[in-house]
Design a protein around this nucleic acid. Sequence first.
DNA 1: AAAATTCGCAACCGCACCATG
DNA 2: ACATGGTGCGGTTGCGAATTT
Length: 330
Amino acid sequence: MGHHCCSKQKVKRGLWSPEEDEKLIKHITNHGHGCWRLQRCGKSCRLRWINYLRPDLRRGSFTEHEERTIIDVHRILGNRWAQIAKHLPGRTDNEVKNFWNSCIKKKLIAQGLDPNTHNLLSPHQIPILNAYHNKTIDSTKPVFSIINTSSTQTKDTKKVQAFRPHLDTNDPLMTNNLYENSITHQSSNLNYQDYNLVLKDDVRHQPTMGFSSQHLAESTIMPILSSLSSSSIPLDFGTVLQPWAANNELGVVFEHARRPEVHQEMLQPPILVGQEVVAQDFVNKGMDVRDGGVVQSQTNMDMSSFDGCNIDLEFMDQAALMANALWNVF
DNA sequence: AAAATTCGCAACCGCACCATG
DNA sequence: ACATGGTGCGGTTGCGAATTT
């Protein structure tokens, strides 16, 4: 049975005045926590004390460390605010909840991450991202296509440009968390352009490696290692999170990825670029780049398999290979 | 400058559970 | 067994401030 409480009793409601606060503090100092019934509903008094008047409360804006803790614990516990708050001395569940809803949530979405699952937003969730960025990505059309060709690439042909597909560059926190921006390749003789490798430190401060592609023309060529099948390069990107795709963007993110400077030492042997894949097939299920050449897939990608936690392992396997190759190429 | 909109956050609500008389 | 009150929790609301139009 619910409480009649404030709604049906003639007690004061709304914001607390300094006088009321003082009265409550005096009352608790003199009588302890036992009786909460004053001129307001007991529940209201208790809440005011716990969330605002308690002397051991830590007020003010959340630190980066606190934010990191909230995200980390939320990832494990979900919306158990009271449990999360226990990891933050002096913070209340209400405060943590408010901070999550007003701040962290938006940052995660801005990075293309689902704040509920902490995975990448699926194509069906792209509207959320669109809304945030105030732009439209058509998730119903093919991602992009790559034509078959052979080419070589030297590092001299690289042109690196800063590119942050899902980050608010005006947000100092996010910008600072990037340890490397995306890389955009432009090379006339290779006939590919605007491919972006995204290396970033996400709001969880966990190194994340991923890739995405934007503004890709149908003739875009994406070079990929010819020697992938030899498994000479360890697939050590860590846990693969959910891939996502939209009309002009394709992405996959790996948690606990190596930082570039560390990974550079691992590079072996010299990278050869000689194999291209048809990206549409890459997106389609069943493509196997390890077999060499382009494998045509007859099936269309089932976008629903990317929803929620239903991760398409096969797709991720391919994505991991591809990302690994791109990592090395770049 | 004023109106409209968005944002942050304190406070409230509803529910569950427990203790007590 | 039941009523009442206390506690705890997560979701939601409403208001003042800030920002945008």
